[in-house]
Amino acid sequence: MKRKLIISLLSILFVATTVMGGIAADKGLVYYLSPNQFDEMQTAASKMVESAVERAGYTCRTLVAGNEDSNLQMNQLENAITQNPKAIIVAAVDGNAIVGGVEQAKAAGIPVIVFDRVISETKVDFTSVAGCKRIGIMAAHEIANLLKEKYGEVRGTILDIMGDPGDSYTTLIEEGLRETMENEYPNVQIETKIAYGWEATTAANIADDYLLAHPDTDLIFPHSDHMTVATASVLQTKGLQKNEILLVSTAGMPSGLQLIRDGWLKATVEQPVSAQAEGIAMFLDDIIEGKKIELGPYEVMEIPAEIIEQPYGLELRISGSVINAENVDNPIFWGNQVGD
């Protein structure tokens, strides 16, 4: 009798768990529109958004816009709307080009959540960003610290290698870097070059050529770690020793963290991808149910964050972190989280 009771209770518990689990995983469909599959960070971001959304109880379907094809992304958004999902999360290829699609989604009553790349020309339901300009500012301060270590004062010359100028990630970093340098460290000379398409060999060639004409360059700042790997390879080919020309980067990719461990990269300013994804999951139910979200400070994965009101809607802004030799193995960084 007692045994039957235990079995019955366990059965009820199992059924209840399964049903609850079923309900939890059946809150509905959420689309994630990713801008490309060639950027290591975007590949990781897709996995993290999918994982965070599914942990919040929704089914996540990811669509990738080829290689930053804004027209394809617009088509994908229109197709997603026809499936009447609970929400659409967008990392826009082009924040202006997609406005029409965002407005169609809103007209269909589907909340639009912006991930990583701001859409400022129309109102959206929620935006989760790292603050790329803030990454540029943090990089500027880190560069200033390194130059001060070298000269005892903040002065020197920097080769600044932007990624594709069509990507707001790099243009905002540039804005943050330039403004900070001009206002706070006027003795630092910056020469900017562009690696179109974020192509690593192009970045390597730029460094290779530029250092010949300007051998007094103190520091190279490629805007992404994958370009820094190729740039470090050029420095090695030139027979330079570690830190003879300093390297600072952004993103926090696994390859960048490895370069820090190897001693070639002094620091990279992490884009907190996993926290950005988690930030969406934290507020997903409220956004879908149309509940009011309070402004003010929050913590996402123990990282300080803040929700502010922007002309385009609520924005969750999460600080990036400076990763260097001292903290490179911290598991909180997304570059240490990706793998199989």
């Binding site: 060639f38 290591e40 398409g197 690593a200 994958h226 790997v229």
Partner: peptide
């Protein structure tokens, strides 16, 4: 040349 590969290598 690049001591490895990245997803966008050689693009264009």
């Amino acid at each position: 040349r690049t001591n490895g590969s990245s997803p966008s290598l050689g693009q264009g």
